[in-house]
Amino acid sequence: MTDTAQQPVFRPATVADVPALVALVESAYRGDSSRTGWTTEADLLDGQRTDAVAVAEAVGDPDGVVLVAEQDGELLACCQLERHAGHAYFGMFSVRPGLQGGGLGRSVLAEAERLAGEEWGVTVLEMKVIEQRADLIAWYERRGYRRTGVYTPFPYGDERFGIPRRDDLRFETLTKEI
C-alpha cells in the first residue's frame, strides 16, 4: 500500500477480477517474484498455484466469496471463503509480495473472520496449510489458529496444484473459533 495509514477497501471479487487474481496468487506463491515476500512456496513446488478456471469457479460459488483488498482501485490482496455447515473454509490467501510483512495480511484475515462470523453466522474458520510451511503455521498460531493434527495428502500427479519438488508434502488443518 502506498500509504500504510490508509486501510484497504474490501469487496467481493467479480469475474472481471479473475485475471488480476490469478496474477496475484501466482506472484505470492510461485516463481522468483514470490521470493520478494515470505509466503513463497517456490522451494516446495513448481508450476502453477491456481488458474483462471479455478478462480472463476471460486468467484461464482454461491456458497462462497473471494474477498479482495484494494486501494485506489489497485488489487493488493485476496482470500477465498467457502460457507459450510457450522464453519467456513479459508483459502487462496494472497498478499502482493512487496507488501507482505506490513500488516495487510492481518487486515485481510480479520475481515474474513468478521465476514464469516457476523454475516454468515459460523463459529469456526478452517484452513489447510502445507505442513512443511512452519513459518506460515506459526503466523496463523499467533493469530489464534490451532493445529488439529488432521492431515490431508497433497494431490500428487495433479499439476493444477503445482509440481512438487519433494515427496513428503501434506496439508494440516488449522482451525480457530471466531
Results as ranks from 00 to 15, higher is better:
3 D>S: 06
10 F>E: 02
13 A>H: 03
15 V>K: 08
17 D>G: 06
18 V>M: 11
20 A>R: 14
20 A>E: 15
21 L>H: 10
22 V>K: 11
22 V>C: 11
23 A>Q: 12
30 R>F: 02
34 S>R: 03
34 S>G: 04
36 T>M: 03
38 W>I: 04
41 E>C: 06
43 D>H: 13
49 R>W: 08
51 D>Q: 08
52 A>P: 12
52 A>S: 14
57 E>K: 14
57 E>W: 00
58 A>N: 07
58 A>K: 11
61 D>L: 08
65 V>D: 01
66 V>R: 09
71 Q>A: 15
74 E>N: 01
77 A>Q: 10
77 A>F: 13
79 C>A: 15
80 Q>P: 00
81 L>N: 09
82 E>G: 06
83 R>K: 14
83 R>N: 07
86 G>P: 04
87 H>F: 15
89 Y>P: 00
91 G>S: 15
91 G>Q: 05
92 M>G: 01
94 S>V: 07
98 G>Y: 03
99 L>N: 08
99 L>S: 12
101 G>A: 02
101 G>W: 02
102 G>Y: 08
103 G>F: 12
105 G>S: 11
107 S>N: 02
108 V>N: 09
108 V>F: 11
113 E>G: 08
113 E>P: 12
115 L>E: 01
116 A>H: 10
116 A>D: 11
118 E>Y: 04
120 W>L: 09
120 W>V: 05
123 T>G: 09
124 V>I: 14
124 V>L: 15
124 V>C: 13
125 L>F: 08
126 E>Y: 05
128 K>L: 08
130 I>R: 11
131 E>N: 11
131 E>P: 00
132 Q>R: 13
133 R>P: 00
136 L>G: 12
136 L>K: 03
140 Y>A: 04
140 Y>H: 10
142 R>C: 04
148 T>S: 12
149 G>C: 10
150 V>E: 14
152 T>Q: 14
152 T>K: 06
152 T>P: 00
157 G>L: 05
159 E>F: 01
160 R>Y: 00
160 R>S: 10
162 G>K: 01
163 I>A: 03
165 R>I: 01
169 L>H: 02
169 L>T: 03
169 L>R: 02
169 L>S: 03
170 R>N: 07
171 F>E: 03
172 E>V: 15
174 L>K: 11
175 T>N: 08
176 K>N: 05
176 K>S: 07
